[in-house]
């Protein structure tokens, strides 16, 4: 994996100039034309791809501002002839379905789940990477195995369990599990990060009599902050988008989250696309904002695929 740096190093040691692809060498007019055509194709494809990604969203936003009479116009107008905010007001400020309520429900869940996930996945990752104990690898293996088992398998027993303790239509079934490990993937991700920190740090601290809690809090935690941010962001997105959990456990409309609430909009508004699109825009907007604000950690975090590299 370190081959590029290695070659670079060898070249420096040997007093050679750093190796670079020979760009300037033998460039005939034919090569130049081919080069320009190649670049043009690449940019054209990138632009086509971006349009494919954005057009549905543009269409969504455009529809959300259209008056009823314009929504079903053929040929469709890209830019609304007349912008109206009426449907945003109706969709977002109405009481049935109650978007604001859905929003607050979701935010409460976000808070409960993100805090629980960060805390307990950090603890678990520490225990899996820097503490020796019997059965550690077995437990870690079992934790990873949970990712391979279809959710449907544990769905029925969990639902029965939660209904026996009277927790259906509360946030407990959605939030509490986050306080017990915070998900295999997050544990895995943080553990990978911690494995890269040299053990010397802990050993030195342990010599001085530091406890595991102290080492975690003052040595490890500051170093894995970037990974914690990644976990927090992806947990935010995951909770925001979760559909099945709320669908199973939340039964009254007042407890709905945004993702689930959008289905009430669909049932209530049917094919009133401007209203539906207004609600959809409001639903995806926080995710879009999060993505553009945290581009770097998100793009880097999305690369961290479990296991198979290296």
């Amino acid at each position: 994996m370190t081959t590029p740096e290695l070659t670079q190093g060898v070249h420096e040691v040997a007093g050679l100039p750093p190796q670079r692809p020979t760009r300037k060498a033998r460039r005939s007019t034919g090569d130049l034309v081919r080069h320009i055509l190649g670049r043009a194709t690449i940019y054209a494809l990138l632009i086509i791809g971006s349009l494919a990604a954005l057009l549905p969203l543009f269409w969504m936003v455009s529809t959300s501002f259209k008056a009823n009479s314009e929504v079903f116009k053929i040929p469709a107008t890209w830019i609304p002839e007349q912008f109206t905010f009426e449907y945003y007001a109706e969709a977002l400020l109405g009481t049935s379905p109650n978007f604001i309520r859905f929003f607050f429900n979701t935010m409460i869940l976000e808070l409960l789940i993100i805090v629980g996930t960060l805390l307990t996945s950090l603890l678990a990752a520490y225990a899996f990477s820097r503490v020796q104990w019997r059965g550690r690898d077995l437990v870690f293996g079992a934790t990873l195995a949970t990712m391979m088992v279809p959710f449907a398998v544990t769905l029925v027993p969990l639902f029965i369990g939660w209904s026996k303790v009277g927790a259906i239509d509360t946030f407990w079934p959605l939030a509490l599990p986050a306080w017990f490990g915070g998900g295999a993937f997050n544990i895995f991700l943080l553990r990978q990060f911690m494995m890269q920190i040299p053990k010397d740090f802990d050993e030195a601290a342990q010599m001085d009599g530091a406890s595991h809690w102290y080492i975690l809090r003052y040595i490890i935690m500051p170093m894995v902050k970037p990974a914690l941010l990644v976990v927090a962001i992806f947990t935010f997105i995951g909770v925001w988008n979760d559909f099945l959990g709320p669908l199973i456990y939340l039964t009254s409309n007042d407890n709905y989250t945004i993702a689930l609430g959008l289905t009430s909009f669909k049932q209530t508004y049917g094919t009133q696309w401007n209203l539906l699109m207004a609600a959809s825009v409001a639903t995806i907007l926080p995710i879009v904002i999060v993505l553009f604000t945290f581009q770097k950690p998100i793009i880097e975090g999305a690369n961290l695929n479990p296991g198979l590299k290296g």
């Binding site: 971006s50 969203l57 269409w59 997105i237 988008n241 993702a259 959008l262 699109m277 995806i284 993505l291």
Partner: peptide, 21 residues
Amino acid sequence: VLFYLPSILPVVAVIVVWLWL
């Protein structure tokens, strides 16, 4: 970022907009 964006949008919103498209 643009290529990545659609993959992290909530599935319900994605379905609603595709129903319309």
